[in-house]
């Protein structure tokens, strides 16, 4: 469903993601764990294009969301001037493969690589691209800080996007919103403004707001980290319900018990890379990577 291919990301020259790949299949619940600053949020934000990647690609349902990364496409590299310079006989398959891997490894592609190369990139983009705003409709995102719209009441928070984007009429959206509010146990808050809600209520409404768009996958970035302890349960409970209903999700969390119980796959990130991944019982029960062991000994 979501396919993250070898992404790199830097902020002002500090590399935060150093070649991360993930394939999220339909129905999977992936828990991303790792120490603070390891790049978990950045990875999630790259998936939903809130950050632009430097290298690599993000795909959703077979459509490309990011720009084309030529390094992932040997046939496009083969059209570059650099390739032509380094590979005198392109008919020689062995040499060709060697040169392509050298170009990849040493990051040799330049800004201008000739008309043929750039038109190949453009053609590939045109054939596969999905507009960011369309893609985001199918990816619900829930933030640590809730991020409700403070100038709108709860109902308006929920209906605004689907109505504005003409996915539903106002009546349909309100009907759906009221159902969702019922479900999360907050029907009497429909006219409340965010400033009057507790953290747990805000986060449940933020989740409901994402659900308004009928997303195919939900991305959660530490949804309970900003909550008072007594409110963590209500939010995790809602997420668990969604998981049980079969929602595909990627969740960054420091709640290890929750990850173990709820996830179908756990990924451990550190230093901008995924160092270990596997079934929850393996990751928590018999970790192999040294840093994962160290991390678990601190948090468990």
């Amino acid at each position: 469903m979501i396919s993250v291919k070898n992404i790199f990301k830097d902020f002002h020259k500090t590399e935060v993601l150093k070649g991360v790949s993930i394939d999220v299949e339909k129905g999977e619940k992936i828990a991303l764990i790792g120490p603070s600053g390891s790049g978990k949020s950045t990875l999630l934000r790259c998936m939903n294009l809130l950050e632009q990647v430097k290298y690599g690609e993000v795909w959703l349902d077979g459509r490309l969301l990011t720009p084309v990364d030529p390094y992932l496409h040997p046939d496009i590299i083969a059209k570059s001037k650099t390739f032509a310079k380094l590979c005198p006989e392109p008919g020689n398959a062995e040499l060709k493969a060697e040169v392509i891997s050298k170009i990849k490894k040493e990051d040799l592609l330049k800004k201008h690589e000739g008309a043929e190369f750039h038109s190949a990139v453009r053609r590939y983009l045109k054939e596969n691209r999905l507009n960011a705003n369309l893609a985001r409709r199918s990816m619900g995102m829930v933030f640590q800080q809730f991020n409700l719209f403070n100038n709108m009441n709860v109902l308006k928070n929920m209906v605004f996007a689907p109505v504005k984007l003409k996915i539903m009429t106002k009546e349909q959206a309100e009907e759906k919103a009221l159902k969702l509010l019922d479900r999360i146990g907050l029907p009497d808050k429909k006219y409340a403004f965010p400033s009057s809600l507790s953290g747990g209520q805000k986060q449940r409404i933020a989740i409901a707001r994402s659900l308004m768009m009928n997303p195919e996958v939900m991305l959660f970035d530490e949804p309970t980290s900003a909550l008072d302890p007594e409110m963590v349960g209500e939010v995790l409970g809602l997420i668990k319900e969604l998981a049980d209903e079969g929602m595909t999700m990627v969740i960054v969390t420091h709640e290890m018990a929750f990850a173990r119980e709820c996830a179908t796959r756990v990924m451990f990130m550190d230093g901008g890379k995924i160092l270990e991944e596997g079934a929850p019982d393996d990751i928590f029960g018999s970790p192999k990577n040294e840093r994962l062991k160290e991390f678990l000994s601190k948090v468990l």
Binding site: A135, R137, M141, F143, F146, N150, A161, L165, R209
Partner: peptide, 13 residues
């Protein structure tokens, strides 16, 4: 706060 902008964009607005 930028979070609201991001939440809006994340909804596809």
């Amino acid at each position: 706060d930028r979070g609201q902008t991001e939440a809006g964009r994340a909804l596809g607005l």
